[in-house]
Every structure is written in C-alpha cells, then in structure tokens.
Amino acid sequence: MVGGVLPPTETSNPTWTVEFADVRTYVARRLLQAIPTLLGVTIFSFALTRLAPGDPVQLMTFDPKMTVKSREILRHQLCLDRTTVEQYFIWLLGSQECNTRGLIRGDFGDSLYDKRPALDMILERVPATLELTGTALLIGILIGLGIGIYSAAKHGTLFDSLSRIFAVIGQAIPTFWLGLIMILVFAVILRWLPVGGRYTLSIEGTKNFFDHLKHLMMPAFVLALFWIAILSRYMRTEMLEVIRQDYMRAARAKGVPKRKVYFRHGARNALIPFITILGPAIAGLLSGAVIVERIFSWPGMGRLAIDAVFQRDFPLVMATVMIGAVLVIGGNLLSDILYGAVDPRIRLN
C-alpha cells in the first residue's frame, strides 16, 4: 500500500450490489400496478364497442325471412338486451344465464359468430403476430442501431445525409401504400416473393423454412421500415451525445482501438436511453401489424381484430384488445427491466 489508507470520508458505499430478489419484487409490484391499468382498458374499450354504431344482431340476422320476434329471442340469448352497464359486469364477472364465467375467471366469452371461445381464437393467431412483430422489431433494432451508430461516427458525411433522407422517407411513407407497392413490384412484376399468407399450403401439410422466410420477409420489412427510421435517428442522437464524453477519450488513451471504443464503450452507453423507446416501439408494432396483416393476408391477431370490429363481434373485439393491452404492458415492463440491467446507476425499486 502506497499513499496511505483512505480517510473515513472516502469509505465505501454499501449499496452497489444488485440482489436478484430486488428484481423479483419489482416485477411483482409492476404486475400489481398493471391490474388497475387493465381495468381501465376494459371500461374504455367496452364503452367504445357499445357506443359505436352497428348492431351484431342486425348483422347476424340480415335475412328478410327473419321475424322481429326471433330477432329479439336471439338478442335475449346473447344477453344483448341488457343495459350496457349490466353487460359490462356480466362480461367481467360472469353470469350463468349468459353462459360465461367472466373475465376474472379467465373466460373472454364466445365469439358471436364462431361460437368458440374468443381466447382460443386469439391464441391460435398470437404466434403469427409475434413472429411478424418480433422479426420486424429485430430488423428495426439491428438496422436502426447500425445506421445510427455509423452516421454518428461519420457525422457530417454523405452517409449521414443519406441516412437522414432515408429516415424522413421511412417515417413519411404510409404502411399500406408501401405494402401494396412492394407486393406489386416483388410479387406481381418480379415474382420473387409470394403475394401474401404465412406459408404455401400443401396437401401434405409440410412446412418449409425457406418458404416461410419468403412469406415473412416482405411484411416484416414493411412493418419495420418506420422503426428503422425512428430508431436510427434516436441512436444517432444518443451516440453523438456519448461521443463527446470524457470516458470515450479516456478509453482511447488506454489504447483501445477507435472502433472498439465506439462499439464497446460508446454503444453500451447510448443504448440506455434507446431502451426506453422499446416499450412504445412494441406497442407501435402491434398496432402497425393490424394493417400489415390485412395487406399481406397474414393470419395474425390484427386481421382477426379488424374482422371482429367490422362484424361487431363484441367478445372477440374485447378479447383482442385485452391481449393487446397485456402485450403492451409486458413490453413496457421488459424495457424497464432491461433499462436497469444496462445502466448500473438505475436500481429497480
């Protein structure tokens, strides 16, 4: 020991270890906090479905032979003759008469048309949606980060200007238009990629990975483009901020090569604020998927939701909204946990 023992003012601060238990209690608390949020979602969306014009019974009985009497019987069987408030509590808490155990017991009700549990119908579609949005998110992050870091490192150059123009275009192009143009170019004219669907149907029912990939490519890219544009701008700004920090020069003074300074010392710091945008990005991708799935006939939740809305299939609409809300809350929680994981200065408590 040289230089003497440190005086008491410089002694250590004992709060520097992260206990795993902290993370668990944090997650548990966040999940408890999610309950009132979800309850609010149920009230608003339930009210919206009932306030919107259109009547499922009318749509289901669009038949000149149907009498007013039998229509009223159907309405009564579906419990749609009750007041909105009553219907809400039946849906939430369940009712023997209306043949539902209620949301709190995990029953989302049956689809008015298919007469199958709405939850089952959604769960069949969730993997397709997660596949599409997950791929789009991955593309968005990888390309967005890459462009962002590179244009920060080379700021003021031609690449930087091009990436700015690309970002403006990427944010401005409407998804549905880009989807249609891409279908026109790559599927109709060039015939490189399929027009839509998740895979080529075959009699044997076999699935081919490359076939699957060919179907996934176009919708995933269309969905990702907006987020590539947003995330690359975001990352560029963060990275420019980080480049000016003292520790970047200090790392170079240690003999760390320039590229490694950017990617090891710089990107790790720039990622911290970047992660906060991931929660909103997940929510944005889920809502974007609704349109993209429709255009590319992708058999996901979004398409199911749109069809349910047009048919006024109330239980199915509510179920898609609830599952969507859970995915968004989960995405936000995930980004907050990641936030604590990459930044040691943030403690989850």
């Binding site: 520790y247 020069r249 200090a250 790790r268 710091n269």
Partner: peptide, 10 residues
C-alpha cells in the same frame, strides 16, 4: 475530471 473519465456502465 476523474469521474466522467470512467465509463459509467462498467
């Protein structure tokens, strides 16, 4: 500036 010369995430 010793504190800002150290990388905050390591």
């Amino acid at each position: 500036q010793p504190i800002s010369s150290l990388n905050p995430v390591f």
